[in-house]
Structures are given as structure tokens and as C-alpha cells.
Design a protein around this nucleic acid. Structure first.
Lengths: 121, 121
DNA sequence: TATCGTTATATTCTTCTATACATTACGCTA
DNA sequence: TAGCGTAATGTATAGAAGAATATAACGATA
């Protein structure tokens, strides 16, 4: 049945201080893994360094093992790398996210209301 | 396995203009049904009348049949009531919401990461 | 020792959302 | 016809989140 409504949602993994992992945070981790630094990762996704740093700090505080190891100063000024624990966290989130997307798609098919005709094509 | 992490999320029904129904909107509809006016409903949930009115307007615009019928002036100054279409929308949302909560709870059990020991009890 | 790009951190500016406030329109009722 | 509480609508205000800006600390390297 043609229906212009659909279920949407946001998903995150809640930790002791609030959000531990969400879509944006996981993308950030992947960019850090790719670029080798928080600042390059932030630039690549047009996020302020300040914000990126805070997110990484929040994730590290809430994880048994740090998800990102940082090095200040030295060759290249320093840098950051995603730990094994961080890689597992990324994997864990995407696995849940995949199931989540699937749930939303399937459940959308079961919606029993119709949007305004003004918007129907 | 003891795990202080859990999946959380937000759910809404997306319409042609963005959000059609969400948790707050459905509560608002129920309050309107209960109190018989937008203003009383807004007061009861400490929401500004302006905001409540806009939400109702947004829902009505996106629905084939209005979800709320409004009466201006007259006995008691007027009022608002939830239509049959509105009642169906409420029901539809809660049904999806229930499945959603169930999904999150079940999927949380399958999470394979652990929060920081600092937070474990 | 000077340089470099990074991490780390404080402060200010923007932007968005919702509230607060104010005013008009409305229509039944006394 | 005046009063009532609502719908309807515009404008101003407040708070929060994030961006923008600025500066210091760091440590390998030339």
C-alpha cells in the first residue's frame, strides 16, 4: 500500500555519563583511524576540533579501555589512533545500527496511517 | 553478562514536512483529548501554548484528515478535540513505539562491549 | 634552540529551539 | 452589549549546543 509516512529514529549506546556511541561519534572514530589525528578527522567532516576532542574525551572516559590513544607533541606534532577496543566499539555499533535500520524498514511497512493527499504523488 | 551499556533511541513518524508524530506530539494529543483544549493541554504539560499550537498545526497539515478539530469562540471560548483520525494516529504510534522499545531491550542484551570499570557496580 | 602540527583548554559568537509576552479574532452567554 | 476563555499570530527573550577564535603546552626533529 502506498504510504508516504515512514518510521525514523536515532540510535545510540548509552553509557554511564549519557551517550557513549552514536552515529556521529562512530564516523569520527573512523576518520581518526583514517587520518591519524583528531584535528585532521575533525577537518575532514567539517566539525570543530573542540567538539571532536570533547567527543573523544567522553568516549574514553566511559570505556574500560580507551577507544583512542593520543600523543601530544613530537614528530608531526602528535596524533591519535583508534585502539583495538575502539575498533570493537565501532564494529559493535554498526552491527546494532544495521539491525536497527532493518527494524525501522520492516516496521514502516506495517504502519496503518496515510499522509495528506496534498502530498501524495 | 553484566553490562552497563544499553541501546537507546528516539522514534518518530516522518511525514512530508518532517516529523509528523513523535513521543511529545502524541502525549500532546492525549492531553488535548483529556482536557478539551490546546491551551489546557499545553498548561498541563508545561508547554507554551504557542509551541503546542504549532505542533497541532503541523500534524493537521500532514494528515489526510485533521487529527484535531478546533473551535474558536463560543461557550468556554472554544476548544479542541481529537478526531477519529487522530485517535488512530495515536494508536498507530504507540503500537510502533511498543515494538521499538522491545527491539531496543532485546538488542541491548546482544551488546558485546563493557563500560569502564570506574562505573561498574 | 627554533620550528612544526598536534593536543589541550578557555572564551566568545552563532544558531536554533522553545518560552514568554502581547495582541487580536471569535462566538456563545448572561 | 459586555465579558469570558479560547484560538490565532506576531515579536522578543532565554537557554543550550556547537562553531569560531585564541592561546598554551608538548616533544621529536632539523
Amino acid at each position: 500500500m502506498n504510504n508516504s509516512y515512514q518510521l525514523r529514529g536515532r540510535l545510540w549506546i548509552e553509557g554511564p555519563e549519557g551517550t557513549f556511541l552514536g552515529y556521529g561519534r562512530v564516523i569520527l572514530l573512523e576518520r581518526i583511524r583514517e587520518h591519524g589525528s583528531i584535528s585532521a578527522a575533525a577537518r575532514s567532516m567539517e566539525m570543530s576540533y573542540r567538539h571532536a576532542w570533547k567527543l573523544v574525551d567522553s568516549m574514553n572516559r566511559q570505556s574500560q579501555q580507551p577507544v583512542v590513544e593520543k600523543k601530544t607533541g613530537g614528530k608531526g606534532g602528535g596524533g591519535a589512533l583508534v585502539t583495538e577496543s575502539g575498533n570493537l566499539a565501532i564494529e559493535c555499533f554498526w552491527a546494532a545500527y544495521k539491525d536497527y535500520k532493518e527494524f525501522l524498514a520492516l516496521r514502516t511497512e506495517k504502519l496503518e496511517i496515510q499522509a495528506s493527499e496534498a502530498y501524495q504523488q
